[in-house]
């Protein structure tokens, strides 16, 4: 039987454990279960089958959409992290006072809803949008640029903006944790600012970069609002299809099989990113 401490421990963790069970494990279990059922017009056939998975893993449409989703998501991740690093660096190394205020300012994008921010980008990037009007007004271009709206570029820009704070904060925290005397030691041992950055600052900031990468990559693969609104027909992602199957197409089993498949792929890629990142961060030569 359990010891007294054991029972105490269980009692202590039970509220968050139940919470996690109800809100994470249960829905996931439902999704996984659904993926092994099948849809027979209006009826749900609950005999276990691999039919949905067979379809997902063989038909080209799904492969195309999943690959495109991963592609867009990686582009977004690279852009977001590359833009976030200088911001986090500035915040950690250059801002001496009021760091809290700066952090607060970084959360400004969150003050409006996700949907509004996407519409904002529509206004900026659109055919008659702010950017095109400005560029035409200034005489840089004669007709509106079309490659910036309703395609992958627009999706990348919109998502990179939306996820910027999530990327900045982990890198900022990692940079803050670097003992400043390490940087002085590197300088003392002959490194100029650039060498010092690549030999000390960046390797030590890698855990933060890694966290940012995963934090942006994982959720953006599954995004369906942004591609729907600014992605046009080439910018559609796998989540858009899942949404269609859940909704109009009324095929929840296929939708869940698609979801579980994407989840497995994203998990594998995340694990690879994590391991590779750890290796780079752990030992730099």
């Amino acid at each position: 039987m359990l010891s007294r401490e054991g029972r105490q421990g269980l009692t202590l963790i039970s509220p968050p454990f139940l919470y996690a069970l109800l809100l994470l494990a249960a829905p996931l279990a439902v999704v996984v279960t659904f993926s092994f059922w099948s849809q027979n017009y209006l009826d749900l056939d609950t005999t276990l089958t691999l039919k949905n998975y067979r379809e997902v893993w063989t038909k080209p449409i799904y492969r195309v959409l999943i690959l495109r989703s991963l592609n867009i998501s990686m582009l977004v991740t690279v852009f977001t992290v590359l833009l976030a690093f200088p911001m986090a660096y500035f915040l950690s190394f250059r801002v001496k006072q009021n760091k809290a205020l700066w952090l607060f300012l970084i959360t400004i994008p969150f003050w409006t809803s996700y949907l509004l921010r996407i519409f904002l980008w529509k206004v900026i990037l659109g055919y008659n949008g702010v950017l095109n009007s400005a560029l035409m007004g200034a005489g840089f271009i004669d007709e509106p640029l079309t490659f910036i709206m309703y395609n992958v570029t627009a999706v990348v820009i919109t998502l990179a903006h939306a996820w910027a704070p999530f990327a900045i904060l982990p890198i900022f925290v990692a940079l803050e944790r670097i003992d400043r005397s390490l940087l002085e030691a590197a300088e003392d041992l002959g490194d100029g600012p650039v060498r010092r950055f690549f030999r000390v600052t960046l390797p030590l900031a890698m855990p933060g970069v890694l966290a940012s990468t995963l934090l942006v990559f994982i959720p953006t693969v599954g995004d369906f609002v942004t591609p729907r609104l600014v992605g046009g027909k080439d910018g559609l992602m796998v989540a858009n299809l899942i949404q269609v199957y859940f909704g109009k197409a009324n095929n929840a089993p296929l939708a869940t099989a698609l979801a579980v498949s994407s989840m497995l792929i994203v998990t594998s890629i995340s694990v690879i990113i994590f391991i590779v990142g750890r290796r780079i961060g752990g030992r730099t030569r």
Partner: peptide
């Protein structure tokens, strides 16, 4: 500091953890 013929032993030692 990187141009000076001096080297320092820091109070915290500043050993590169990586």
């Amino acid at each position: 500091a990187n141009m000076r013929p001096t080297n320092m032993v820091f109070q915290s030692y500043a050993i590169f953890p990586h």
